[in-house]
Design a protein around this nucleic acid. Structure first.
Length: 220
DNA sequence: CTCCCGATAT
DNA sequence: ATATCAGGAG
């Protein structure tokens, strides 16, 4: 069945009502801490990132202090979150750039942020949205999956989905909607076993599984 | 497209 | 055993 604009608006209204109090799950106290936490979050749960940053940030929470750790020292700190060699290399290169070109400050535009090693469009969108209150929709694995399943936006790449969502959602709710979709993806519309019977969208979802289908295939 | 990668859920 | 987790670089 075809998902009309009205259906999309109804689904968004229900998501807003259900997830109105959600925000980032990453713990941070400064712009730099958020930037590092988001870089670490690639292919890793936010829970594990918080464990790592919780023991690292009290001692190492500025570009200068991270650089003092060195490659192997940083790897030791972040090893548990996976992809640790690349992440450590990128974070060190990013800290060097922040010190040499940005006076140790986190840049406030997507164009500048994506110049930093380890920072792609998704991370840049999270940072500008969360730190500088610029409307943006960061498309991570959850947003990508949920947007396609609900057919709020269809696309084969994160950028295609981002553009589709920006058309379907009013600009002043872009940043909030990003969080609605993330939390829905984490708690209900999960990758392996979506809990369609517990979903606030009910029949509105074009991919909804019937109760007797819940145990089998994923509708992607 | 492949590669990077440990921890967790299923 | 295998899929998945706030992706990005080559």
């Amino acid at each position: 069945m075809r998902v009309t604009k009205v259906i999309k608006q109804q689904m968004l209204a229900l998501l807003e009502e259900t997830y109105q109090d959600t925000t980032t799950a990453l713990t941070y106290t400064t712009p730099f801490e958020l930037l590092i936490a988001v870089i670490l979050s690639a292919q890793c749960t936010d829970v594990r990132v918080n464990i790592i940053t919780g023991r690292m940030f009290p001692k190492y929470n500025t570009p200068e202090k991270i650089l003092e750790l060195g490659q192997s020292g940083l790897e030791e700190q972040i090893r548990d979150c996976g992809l640790y060699h690349s992440k450590a290399k990128n974070i060190i290169a990013t800290c060097t750039m922040l010190c040499e070109q940005y006076q140790g400050q986190v840049p406030d535009s997507i164009e500048e942020l994506v110049k930093l090693p380890g920072v792609g469009r998704k991370t840049a969108n999270v940072v500008v949205s969360q730190l500088f209150h610029i409307p943006a929709i960061a498309v991570d694995t959850h947003v990508f999956r949920v947007a396609n399943r609900l057919q709020l936006a269809k696309g084969k790449t994160p950028l295609e989905v981002e553009k589709g969502l920006m058309k379907a959602i009013p600009r002043d709710k872009w940043s909030d909607a990003h969080h609605w979709l993330i939390w829905h993806g984490r708690k209900v519309c999960k990758a392996r076993k979506p809990e369609c019977t517990a979903c606030c969208l009910g029949e509105l979802c074009p991919s909804a599984l019937l109760p007797d289908q819940q145990h089998q295939g994923i509708p992607d």
